[in-house]
């Protein structure tokens, strides 16, 4: 299976995202906070004329909101009809990985278990394959709890 993956760094960890989930990668502009939201929702941001809900994904993993200074890039995705911007530390490459994804091995940090589905290897380095939608859904459930 010749899949295209976006390789990035998220909360200090190497991750891979299936390219078809990714609409764009942008540098984060101004974020308007939404009061009353859980901390992993950074707020709203405008992209041309679209309004994105910005998810502080590192906050979901680490538990603490990412400080302003460290906010870098966001992956834009359309999930269930709504536009989101998912914060990442950095974005490295988009590449094809001929062997596709491999099963998870080793003891994953509890923080990652909801999101990591598999491993993708590139240049001998393992990347956690994550699904962007999982960040949204878990967020919702966490809110309802």
């Amino acid at each position: 299976m010749d899949q295209l993956y976006l390789l990035a760094t998220l909360a200090g960890t190497r991750v891979a995202v299936a390219a078809q989930e990714v609409e764009a990668v942008v540098r984060l502009a101004e974020i308007s906070p939404v009061p009353g939201m859980p901390r992993h929702v950074a707020g709203l941001s405008a992209l041309r004329s679209r309004v994105l809900t910005i998810i502080d994904v590192p906050a979901l993993i680490r538990g603490t909101p990412t400080p302003q200074a460290q906010r870098g890039f966001a992956i834009i995705a359309d999930i269930s009809g709504h536009s989101y911007g998912l914060m990442v530390d950095a974005v490295h490459d988009i590449c094809q990985v001929p062997e596709g994804d491999l099963p998870l091995r080793g003891q994953l940090n509890r923080a990652w278990t909801c999101y990591a589905k598999a491993i993708v290897e590139q240049d001998g380095q393992p990347h956690l394959l994550v699904s962007l939608a999982s960040f949204i859904e878990t967020g919702l459930m966490a809110q309802a709890a």
Binding site: V34, M37, V41, S49, V51, T53, H82, I136, L140
Partner: peptide, 19 residues
């Protein structure tokens, strides 16, 4: 007015968003 994402709507105090 555009509909806000479910995360925002879940708070119950917002009816939508506008740009």
């Amino acid at each position: 007015i555009r509909p806000a994402s479910p995360l925002v709507m879940a708070t119950g105090v917002y009816a939508g968003m506008t740009l």
